[in-house]
Design a protein around this nucleic acid. Structure first.
Lengths: 189, 189
DNA sequence: TCCTTTCCTGAACATTCTGTTCGATATCTT
DNA sequence: AAGATATCGAACAGAATGTTCAGGAAAGGA
């Protein structure tokens, strides 16, 4: 018997090639008009090979998103040293800023998907992850202060954050993560 | 010579049939997997007829959105009598609430598109229209108070409104337009 | 190194959808 | 009624999908 099948270098190579080709194509056209043919041409991979790895094109998008999110949302948990924050760790604000730094560092990659016209799958992922984060590290109960339902507030808060990120990307990240975080804090207080 | 070609009853009939079929199909599956074949089957219309009216499927979506928006955003301008507001007319809050009433009245139609997975075209239309409205009737300068850029605030404000509407629809519009407007006002103050 | 397992290849295939064309037919306006 | 116009329906080329299979390549274990 073999060890983990996933460790086979051929599989790694193929998957990497396909995903890289996919990301590259996303910089050129929108998701809907990227065909499997395009992908396998770019990746230099056989047709049947593609379907051996991904069920459909949507499947590929899903995995790509998941992989991106592991980067974004795992970084804030591990004790990253790349960006210093004066405090120790733990407040929601700091984590959100941390995420912004992460996005900025890996700017090229995220831009490709973020600016993809039909990336709602991506944004929905983002929001669900964000809600988990806010639930875990968020302040006690801002919804009660404002006298609105819990889930309304949660949706509002996370949406506002995501829209801020979109705005940031659309403006080519001209301002710093701290500035954006400050904007966000001012309007959501 | 004829009068306006658009007045031909056959044209009206065909366009109506196609659009109705399209909206009906949107209740059953998401936009991406609706084919022209589906549409012309449902509409009982020849293939060439479809392409005589719409360039592509995207074109059809565009027109459908436009038609919906005429309903939403023209209603607030004309002096509607269907819903009374204590005041006269003119404040932004009232108009937004007015829009909510409109959405609720024509609930079925909007639900179909709103809950369509890939309706970003629709939402982008909505947001751009909303921004026009806010620019025209909005308060003096909330952005300055909060010390954030004008366009950041505009994007934030309209996005928050739209996300509220989405939330409302997802919750089957259980609360009244006034309540939703109140929620929105409380979080965006 | 050899051997077995696993993966990739490349071509072929049946389906489906697209967007266009055209003559025949139905329906409109005047 | 007559001429103008829209629809029908069938056919077509082109492209994409998702599947299959045999042969070759490359990985890992012994």
């Amino acid at each position: 018997m073999y060890g983990k099948t996933d460790m086979d270098r051929r599989i790694q190579k193929t998957r990497t090639a396909i995903m890289a080709a996919f990301e590259a194509l996303l910089t050129e056209k929108r998701y809907e008009q990227i065909t499997v043919q395009d992908i396998i041409n770019r990746a230099n991979v056989g047709r049947s090979t593609f379907y051996a790895h991904f069920e459909t094109r949507d499947d590929l998008l899903k995995y790509t998103c998941q992989e991106l999110f592991e980067h974004v949302f795992n970084a804030h948990l591990s004790s990253e040293k790349s960006h210093d924050f004066s405090g120790g760790e733990g407040t929601l604000d700091m984590m959100l800023t941390h995420i912004l730094y992460h996005l900025k560092d890996d700017r090229q990659r995220y831009l490709r998907i973020f600016s993809c016209e039909s990336a709602d799958l991506f944004w929905r992922y983002f929001q669900s992850q964000l809600e988990v984060l806010v639930k875990r590290y968020g302040a006690k109960d801002p919804a009660a202060d404002k006298k609105v339902p819990e889930d309304y507030y949660m949706n509002y808060y996370c949406s506002a954050y995501i829209e801020s990120v979109k705005w940031w990307f659309q403006n080519n990240m001209k301002i710093s993560p701290e500035e954006l975080a400050a904007y966000f804090a001012r309007v959501t207080v």
